[in-house]
């Protein structure tokens, strides 16, 4: 059974604003019977160009109906500029959260709104301009890219939860994976992660920090495999260690050292650390 919030249950059992507005100022529809859910949204503006009335009709599960109901409540009283800023996360938040597997219900709300606003402006959101990545559910690259960016998605599974893409035959998974890599690279470039300012350390502070890091991050894992590691010396950025126990005759120990220990020390102590193994 899905773990729905009380708010989701309330909006499912008592949906607000069900119906279709006659002669609406804007209307949009997403989804289909084949997809398992669909939402038809319509709105009317008042004299101040604010949304006076919003109505929906939805075919779908409880969270699809609740998301649609929430959407109409959220946008009422907003100008179209304000409404255009409503994200799927806003819809989910309004409902006190949705199970991650059901996030696509909130995305459906956001998409219907986008189409309805475009419809008001006399425009069309044309799917044909974009590449359909997921053929089972007809999801385009544009929708997937938007979801990766707005909802900070990192895995194919998450993309499926949010957009349904990849939830059918799974043949498009490599394409989705490629899109995630591409978009996350772009995102990383746009906002480079803040380099953590690592304070300049005195030699004693540095040795202490290295010892702490080895003791916390590395030695327990080695000990679990019957090995150990001893700090021999520190000279500038060079750290000398010796492997003990099983590690000392393990053929992959060099790999263990270089890849694992050095990364950890660079992360926690200093970016320029170089590791040397000594045999004592």
């Amino acid at each position: 059974m899905w773990d729905y919030t009380e708010k989701v249950k309330d909006h499912f059992l008592n949906p607000r604003n069900v119906g279709e507005i006659e002669n609406p100022d804007g209307a949009g529809e997403v989804g289909s019977l084949a997809c398992g859910d669909a939402l038809r949204l319509s709105f009317k503006l008042d004299e101040n160009k604010r949304i006076k009335e919003a109505k929906f009709k939805t075919f779908g599960c409880a969270s699809a109906i609740a998301s649609s109901s929430a959407l109409t409540e959220i946008i009422k009283g907003k100008t179209l500029e304000e409404a255009a800023k409503v994200t799927n996360q806003d819809i989910a938040n309004y409902l006190g959260g949705l199970p991650e597997e059901k996030m696509h219900c909130s995305v459906m709300g956001r998409e219907a709104l986008e189409i309805a606003i475009a419809n008001y402006h006399g425009q069309k959101v044309v799917k044909e301009d974009f590449e359909i990545i997921c053929k089972c559910f007809g999801v385009t690259d544009r929708e997937i890219i938007k979801a990766i960016r707005e909802d900070d998605l990192k895995t194919v599974e998450q993309v499926t939860y949010y957009t349904k893409a990849g939830g059918g035959c799974e043949q498009c998974h490599p394409k989705i994976e490629a899109l995630i890599n591409q978009v996350r690279k772009e995102m990383a470039k746009e906002a480079p992660p803040l380099q953590q300012e690592k304070k300049k350390l005195t030699n004693i502070q540095k040795i202490k920090l290295i010892q702490e890091t080895l003791g916390r991050e590395i030695i327990p894992a080695l000990k679990a495999d019957g090995g150990d590691l001893e700090l021999i010396d520190v000279e500038g950025n060079k750290v000398y260690v010796a492997l003990r126990g099983k590690c000392s005759f393990c053929p992959s120990s060099e790999f263990t050292l270089k890849k694992y220990v050095e990364t950890k020390l660079r992360e926690f102590v200093s970016d320029d650390i170089e590791l040397e193994e000594v045999r004592l």
Binding site: W2, F12, L13, G36, D37, F59, G60, C61, A62, A64, I65, E101, K102, C136, F137, T160, K164, G167, G168
Partner: peptide
């Protein structure tokens, strides 16, 4: 849609199941 039916039935104490997508966790 099946999940909606099941939840409304469940609200009345009736326990059944569905072959709908939304109940299986798949799409």
């Amino acid at each position: 849609e099946g999940e909606s039916i099941l939840l409304l039935l469940s609200d009345l104490g009736i326990c059944a199941s569905s072959g709908s997508a939304c109940t299986s966790g798949s799409l």
